[in-house]
């Protein structure tokens, strides 16, 4: 069953095409990552699904709704963390949660949410006294307060220090274990690898890779062989590592040489990603 179905989604701003036929599905309970460089169309996609922007073409179904309709019944069931938004500086963390709780028919308990996002110690602190990471966790808490089935997280950990990032990841994992479907945009590869069940890589408004992180890594580049010859590092990328390695070691043995620094490794998601988003310039 799909929480989100997107087919041939198109959007232009002025003359430039921000989305050029994007299609993907997100299953119920799945964490789906949208990856891509700035300007690839991640935020445009998410904002169409959230109901902020109208699409120029294509089909969109989210929880049985067309988000362009802007129904309150739809917003009742989603939670949103925007890329950049500020909150009331003079309210406390608990007051802000209660204010947002009042917008929903069946909200979660405010104290419970404050604890879930790790702000219990700050519950009576004014928002203006929070650190950047704490404010971002407050954003997450407010996205959860309506007890959403589907959560949109637009670059939820941008600007976090490593500790804060770990804490946010833990909170997101907890949500997934509670059955919440999550659509996440990020430009951190490790974040996608850590959190997402599946990822779509966007480049210039098109999906250029789609699958689980393991599929993306396994599907494309094969392996990478490195060694040193005359002090220079040689890198071979090959779809057939066994054959290539056999040839290399055979030559080395025949010549009585050692392959210094020999290393065979699978590409990381980062290698695959960089490969996918770089193809544009190669063409």
């Amino acid at each position: 069953m799909s929480a989100i179905t997107v087919r041939d989604l198109r959007k232009s701003y002025g003359g430039s095409e921000a989305l050029r036929g994007v299609s993907f599905d997100v299953g119920v309970g799945e964490v789906f990552g949208l990856l891509g460089p700035n300007g690839a169309g991640k935020t445009t996609t998410v904002e169409i699904l959230e109901g902020y922007r109208r699409r120029d073409g294509g089909e969109v179904d989210v929880l049985g709704f067309d988000p362009a309709g802007g129904q309150a019944a739809y917003r009742e069931r989603i939670g949103v963390v925007l890329q950049a938004s500020q909150l009331w500086a003079n309210l406390t963390v608990a007051e802000t949660h209660r204010m947002f709780a009042g917008y929903y028919e069946r909200p979660r308990d405010a104290d419970e949410v404050v604890e879930l996002v790790g702000l219990t110690e700050k519950r009576d602190a004014r928002v203006k006294t929070l650190s950047g990471g704490q404010k971002r966790r407050l954003d997450l808490g407010l996205a959860l307060i309506g007890n959403p089935e589907l959560l949109f997280l637009d670059e939820p950990t941008t600007g976090f220090d490593p500790t804060a990032r770990r804490a946010a990841w833990d909170a997101i994992r907890t949500l997934r274990s509670l059955g919440t479907t999550i659509l996440l945009t990020t430009h951190y590869l490790d974040e996608a690898q850590q959190l997402a069940d599946r990822v779509a890589v966007l480049r210039a408004g098109e999906i250029v890779g789609l699958g689980t992180p393991a599929e993306l890594v396994g599907g494309s580049l094969g392996a990478e062989i490195r060694y040193r010859r005359d002090g220079e590092v040689v890198v071979l990328r090959t779809e057939r590592p066994t054959e290539e390695l056999h040839r290399l070691t055979g030559e080395a043995l025949a010549g009585g040489r050692e392959l210094d620094g020999l290393e065979v490794r699978r590409p990381t998601l980062e290698d695959v990603y960089l490969d996918l988003v770089a193809e544009e310039e190669v063409r």
Binding site: Y52, A72, A73, V80, L82, Y103, L142, G146
Partner: peptide, 14 residues
């Protein structure tokens, strides 16, 4: 300008 109105638009508040 602080995107508070935008954030509120994502809630069921009409």
């Amino acid at each position: 300008e602080s995107a508070l109105l935008k954030r509120l638009r994502a809630t069921p508040l009409p």
